[in-house]
Simulated scan of single mutants.
Amino acid sequence: MTKTLLSLHVLAAIIAIGPVSVAASMFPPAVRRAGANESESGISAAATIQLLHRICRVYAGIGLAVPVLGFATASYMGVLGSGWLIASIILTAAAAGILVVLVLPSQDRLLGRIIDNGTIERSHTAQLAMYTGIFNLLWAVVTVLMVVRPGSTTGA
């Protein structure tokens, strides 16, 4: 059962978190391009931005399976009290908070401005890029903790 849960947990992380990380990273440059080419391909630029935002929202919801499967896996492995797991849980919660409180609302605001043909200032996209970078960095640290598992008895 542990191997099945662990496999599902890893698959959920790859399938759910990967697209959010990529789409969120692509969003600020896409908004900058759309803001620079207001009169040209405005409709296709807005459609691209809407698609990236939708990917972030949908896969963020699917991403809820990652911690659920993670808790189930940790429970079966008997490592719920391990320091590396507790650190991973805290970092995962921080990443989720950044996504829900900072990244997605910022994307909503910028998408609204593009659709309304509003002005896009570089500072707004730079701030979103920073939030996205922090989100991605937190997930990278969680991934490393999951692979290295300080204090693990597996010898890896």
Rank of each mutant, 00 (worst) to 15 (best):
V103Y: 07
L91G: 05
A72N: 01
V141Q: 11
G97I: 02
R122W: 05
R113F: 07
L11C: 07
R54W: 11
Q107M: 12
T132V: 10
L51E: 06
P28C: 03
W84Y: 10
A96M: 10
A34I: 06
V142M: 04
G133W: 02
V100G: 15
F135A: 00
A60H: 09
L5Y: 06
G151C: 02
I62C: 08
D108F: 03
S75I: 07
S106F: 05
L64M: 15
A96T: 09
R33L: 10
T2K: 07
I55P: 07
S39T: 03
F27M: 04
Q127M: 12
Q50R: 15
L137D: 10
P150E: 01
M130V: 08
T132C: 05
P150T: 00
I55E: 05
P67A: 01
M130H: 11
A95S: 00
T73N: 09
K3Y: 13
E121D: 15
V20C: 02
D116S: 15
E121I: 09
P19N: 04
V141P: 11
V147T: 11
H53C: 11
A72W: 00
V141T: 13
I114S: 06
V148H: 10
G81L: 10
V31L: 04
L69P: 09
D116Q: 11
N117G: 13
A36R: 09
G61Y: 08
I86F: 07
W84V: 04
T4P: 07
L138V: 03
D116R: 12
T4W: 14
